[in-house]
Amino acid sequence: MSEARSGAGDVDDPIAYFVQDVGYHGKTERTQEAYERVLREFEAFLADGTTRSSSGVTVREATHRDCMEWIHAKRGELADSTIATYASYLHRFYGYMTQVDAFDSNPMTIVVEQMDESIDTDPARRELSVAEMRSFVADIRHPLDRAVIVTLLKTGMRAGELCNLDVRDLYLSDEPGGARQSIRPSVSGRPDSLYVSAEPRQGVEVNGERRTESNKRKRDTVIPVDDELSRVLVRWLAVRPDAVSDAEPLFVGTRDGWGQRLSIDAVHRIVTDHAADQGWYRTGGGAAENVTPHYFRHFFTTHLRSETGDRGIVKYLRGDVAEDVIDTYTHDWGDRVRETYESNVYALLS
């Protein structure tokens, strides 16, 4: 994020200030309009009066209870996924305005923590067992497709985050010779690990390449690579085409766009083509029916939460947690994160 502009704490219209900065950071006009529409709706709700203050409050004065009241008012009116999107917009708004010293605190922090308790637990989603997922993976023979799908399933990362991975973000003990140019310092002392950065943003240059996808991760994360994922990635690196970009993207095209960094659309096609073969994807089907890259994040989250009983580690792996929790797990990464992950992550390969 950028440095605070002069007078950030005294802005007359915090929403306009935030939306303008969103544009400066490369968000499209459509995204800016979406932010403004939701935030203005929230502003109007507050002005009409809340349970806490019948005379109304401003967005600067709103507390977590005001935020929760607005979100509660949306239940029954909007789909749960839309409510989650609105909450994320509000959280980003308050988080940014706090960061630039325009607001004293982010009232959405506690609200999002409460909402996180129910992330990806929608009972309407297709329910798949580990055995069914293992059978699904067994039918995937193409090295790129297999590497993409197993990486998504084993890490819970978003499709955009997978697209933004460079070879330097991966450190494997059994890596084939010639694949390595450099290793990030963050993983150089941690063999068999994968670094997922919070840095990439659409239109921003990272590692010498302007990115077309954005990472939505709140903090940089180092994810363990278990033996299964290592085997799949070693096989992929052995046949991976030379990359067009000097950034050396980890996943590149082997069909259309030979050697070019995979896009979110390409990842979506890989997943849904195989899911359709399994009867798990239908054009026009909704989230309750279709298996997509995001479904794998849901599958990963649900399983790890159930098996570990440690929501903190799951949030760390997802990249959802605040800085103080990140610091805790970063410090104790080898003893706690890796051991907990490897003891509880599901086996996918026969």
Rank of each mutant, 00 (worst) to 15 (best):
D227V: 11
G285K: 04
S55E: 15
D327A: 15
I149H: 04
Q32F: 06
V314T: 05
S129E: 07
N207F: 07
E209C: 09
S6E: 15
S2A: 13
R158S: 01
G95M: 03
Y346H: 13
A131S: 09
T212K: 12
L153F: 02
A62W: 07
G189A: 07
A322L: 12
P293S: 04
G259T: 05
D13M: 14
I183P: 07
P14L: 13
R146L: 02
W280Y: 12
L229A: 02
V100W: 02
H142Y: 03
S182Y: 11
Y171H: 15
G309E: 00
R338Q: 08
D277K: 15
T340N: 03
V19M: 07
N106W: 09
E33F: 10
I15A: 07
G259L: 05
V204D: 05
A87F: 01
F251W: 12
R158T: 05
H64R: 15
D120A: 13
T82E: 11
V57H: 10
V252F: 05
L144R: 10
G285R: 06
R282P: 03
D273T: 08
F45L: 10
R125V: 00
W70Q: 08
A102L: 02
G56P: 03
V22P: 04
M108W: 11
L348M: 09
T292A: 09
N344A: 08
D332T: 10
Q99G: 14
G56R: 01
V187K: 03
S173T: 12
E199D: 07
R134Q: 10
V167S: 14
L172R: 02
V271P: 05
S306K: 12
F136S: 00
D310A: 07
V325G: 00
T221N: 00
T212V: 06
D327H: 12
N207P: 01
R261P: 02
H331K: 14
H268C: 05
Y17E: 13
G76M: 04
I15G: 04
E199C: 01
I313T: 07
R40I: 11
E161H: 07
T151Q: 04
G284N: 03
E29M: 10
H64W: 13
A266L: 13
D242T: 15
V11I: 14
M108S: 15
V244A: 06
S230Y: 04
R37A: 15
A131W: 01
S263N: 04
S173Y: 03
S173E: 09
G23L: 10
A179F: 01
L90Q: 12
D310G: 00
S230Q: 10
H298R: 14
